[in-house]
């Protein structure tokens, strides 16, 4: 393949990068809330449950992304409902939901012995096989999700700072939290194509964590998370071309490297401040 072919818009390489950038546009800002609200474990729960979604989608003959979104919504609603009781803490509830969903997913997959499908592609992503239709899904869906996030942005930040305070001031009605759960479930469904269901949480939390050091406002952190996520997508896909590594894991490894660099940059900045 010549360089020109790789660079043309029709090439799978360019499509992969465009798809990845589309996903980080929504994963960056939404991931900030996952970090601020300490919901990384909920992301894991969604990704485990996504396997059940994929399996059910294939069994029922619908798009696996739809299956993932539906199962994610069910998980979010179950969590909100179970959180109303106080005896079992949230992390335990998430552990129960996560592993129950994973177990059900594995059982459903075992019944599909004769159905052939690319399990590895779903687990670790298959960004190099992204089609034009996938791109339409990612950008169309991503735009809707971004608009939804923008609509609840201010009350969600108030709720994140202090739930009681926000509710007293009229900013914290239940639909905001419900809307956030829905956004997360749908984002996992969209991001699954890029890094796979096992690594979706990484795309949500690593770019915001790396962005924290450079941000002085919530919006600044969201923007920086998008930039860092974009850099991870481009460098990860480039690396996977150069060294023929799997693309999804390469993107996550690149993001983790950027996070490590942000830590070093922070230490250097602190040391410089200490000397002056």
């Amino acid at each position: 393949m010549t360089m020109l072919e790789i660079m043309s818009f029709d090439s799978f390489a360019v499509r992969a990068v465009v798809a990845g950038l589309g996903v980080v546009l929504i994963a960056g800002p939404l991931g900030c809330f996952v970090v601020w609200r300490r919901m990384a474990y909920f992301g894991d729960t969604l990704s485990h449950a996504a396997l059940t979604g994929v399996a059910l989608g294939i069994v029922l003959g619908v798009n696996p992304a739809v299956g993932i979104a539906v199962i994610g919504l069910v998980m979010g609603l179950l969590l909100l409902g179970l959180q109303q009781q106080r005896r079992i803490p949230t992390d335990t509830l998430l552990g129960i939901l996560s592993h129950a969903a994973l177990a059900v997913g594995l059982i459903v997959v075992s019944f599909m012995g004769t159905v052939r499908f690319d399990l590895m592609g779903y687990l670790f992503g298959d960004i190099l096989a992204v089609t034009g239709g996938d791109l339409a899904w990612i950008y169309g869906g991503g735009a809707v999700l971004l608009a939804g996030l923008a609509a609840i942005w201010r009350p969600l930040i108030a709720l994140t700072v202090d739930q009681d305070m926000a509710i007293v001031e009229g900013a914290g009605r239940l639909p905001v939290r419900l809307a956030f759960m829905i956004l997360m479930a749908l984002t996992v469904a969209i991001a699954m194509k890029v890094v796979g269901i096992l690594l979706v949480t990484a795309l949500l939390i690593i770019p915001p964590a790396a962005a924290r050091r450079f941000a002085t406002s919530p919006e600044g952190m969201a923007a920086a998370a998008v930039l860092i996520g974009g850099a991870a997508v481009i460098s990860g896909i480039s690396a996977s071309f150069i060294w023929d590594t799997p693309s999804g894991p390469s993107i996550v490894a690149a993001a983790a490297t950027l996070f490590a660099l942000s830590l070093v940059a922070g230490l250097v900045a602190d040391a410089a401040r200490g000397r002056s």
Partner: peptide, 27 residues
């Protein structure tokens, strides 16, 4: 109209917020 100061806002270190922004979170 209630002004409420809760006992301890458990502000996450990861959320960058200026005093200005904190004061105008809901209004």
């Amino acid at each position: 109209r209630i002004g409420y100061q809760s006992q301890q806002i458990t502000l996450d270190q990861t959320l960058p917020l200026s005093v200005r922004r904190f004061l105008t979170l809901t209004h």
